[in-house]
Simulated scan of single mutants.
Amino acid sequence: MCSLFGLIDFTECLSTHTKNKILNTLARECQVRGTDATGIAYNFNDRLRIYKRPIPARKMKIHIPHGVNTIMGHTRMTTQGNAQFNQNNHPFLGHVDSGAFALAHNGVLWNDKELRITENLPQTSVETDSYVAVQLLEQQKTLDFDSLKAMAEKVEGSFVFTVLDKNNAIWFVVGDNPLCIMFYDGYLLYASTQEILCKTIKKLKLNTPSDILEPKEGEILKIDRAGHITTGSFMPKNSYEHWWRRYPYYCSYYEDTTANYDDLFSVAKAFGITADEIQALLDYGCSEEEIEEMLYDPTLLHEMTGELLYAY
């Protein structure tokens, strides 16, 4: 479970000091979804800059230079790839014919190893599952609606991708993970959940946003540096609804649980924990936070769920 966040100042109405204050507050609120690493990406002096560290947002001081108006960020909870090796953290750098781009991902992909073989992707020292999305885009040598659509239709798992291009547009590729964008007069803020944005707004004492956008699964949005929105779409290879239909024993839980626990199920899968085990713990009364702690001790978790499932 990670969080995306960022800002686009369309009209350069915010001072550099204000943007830094917003970004630091926003990043700290995103810690609820990940504290293993923090990173941002932006363009400055015709060059894409990525600054990331294996530390929680509260320990990292975000300081963008004057004149930067589009910033993409990420806070990470590790599921694959040791966060202490900074190459495994988000955002990731990629290159296409039109120039460099940065990509960040919220979610878990579980066919990344398969794709590296079937798509003949180059070997890399990056261990993170998310990096396969960068490689798929690089393979197509372009960054546009078609290449993003092709990438999104090949990966399997839970995801929202954000991609920053050299022209200061941010592309949003929305799978079954949450995303919220809040618009103000002259700028926007985004994060993985509306709750994160609301807490940020309250701490910064910002006005009520003029509009709130929560894109749906299968949507691709491009928001350029002037605030213009263009849209595309893709057909998800699988979604949690389809995944749950393959497990009829738990179909009765779908309406009540998947809307709230999508990230938990996807993260658990990356740790080798089955949906049955997670559901058993939820039914037993464990909180999401308690289960996330248990994921780091799989032996204990398997023992506990074994007893619960045997009782069923």
Rank of each mutant, 00 (worst) to 15 (best):
169 A>S: 15
238 N>L: 08
132 V>C: 01
263 D>G: 10
278 I>Y: 01
16 T>D: 05
141 K>E: 12
156 E>L: 08
87 Q>Y: 13
247 Y>Q: 11
148 L>C: 14
62 I>L: 14
307 E>W: 06
120 N>D: 14
176 D>R: 11
190 Y>K: 07
107 G>I: 08
23 L>S: 01
237 K>V: 03
15 S>D: 01
135 Q>N: 04
189 L>N: 06
182 M>L: 13
128 T>I: 06
88 N>P: 02
268 A>Y: 05
107 G>N: 11
222 K>D: 07
174 V>I: 14
70 T>D: 11
2 C>K: 00
111 N>H: 00
259 A>F: 14
14 L>G: 02
84 Q>Y: 14
147 S>P: 09
306 G>M: 00
183 F>W: 09
118 T>M: 05
112 D>A: 13
86 N>S: 14
10 F>H: 06
93 L>R: 15
277 E>G: 05
260 N>T: 13
236 P>K: 06
77 M>Y: 14
224 D>T: 04
4 L>G: 07
193 T>P: 02
142 T>D: 11
236 P>S: 09
246 R>G: 08
208 T>W: 05
30 C>F: 01
123 Q>Y: 12
227 G>F: 10
115 L>D: 07
274 T>A: 01
299 T>N: 03
308 L>W: 00
17 H>N: 09
44 F>D: 12
253 Y>E: 09
286 C>A: 10
53 R>K: 15
274 T>C: 01
127 E>M: 13
203 K>Y: 05
8 I>S: 08
310 Y>R: 05
186 G>H: 05
179 L>V: 06
161 F>M: 06
52 K>H: 10
201 I>S: 03
101 F>H: 11
113 K>F: 09
20 N>P: 03
10 F>N: 05
191 A>M: 10
72 M>W: 00
239 S>H: 08
65 P>Q: 11
207 N>S: 13
293 E>P: 03
226 A>K: 15
308 L>K: 01
196 I>K: 03
156 E>M: 10
275 A>Y: 05
97 D>S: 12
85 F>R: 09
99 G>S: 06
154 K>S: 10
251 C>Q: 08
64 I>Y: 06
104 A>G: 14
105 H>E: 12
193 T>R: 06
270 A>L: 02
149 K>P: 00
183 F>T: 12
111 N>L: 03
4 L>T: 01
94 G>V: 11
219 E>K: 12
161 F>W: 11
242 H>T: 13
49 R>T: 15
91 P>R: 07
96 V>M: 08
162 T>H: 11
125 S>A: 15
135 Q>M: 15
296 Y>H: 08
215 P>Y: 10
217 E>G: 11
154 K>P: 04
27 A>R: 07
261 Y>K: 06
62 I>C: 01
14 L>N: 08
136 L>F: 01
171 W>Y: 15
201 I>A: 04
121 L>T: 07
185 D>G: 08
23 L>W: 03
78 T>Y: 07
288 E>P: 00
97 D>A: 13
268 A>F: 04
25 T>H: 00
73 G>M: 11
215 P>R: 07
221 L>T: 05
86 N>F: 09
298 P>Y: 02
134 V>K: 00
193 T>N: 01
214 E>V: 10
136 L>Y: 02
69 N>Y: 15
270 A>G: 04
46 D>S: 15
90 H>S: 02
109 L>T: 05
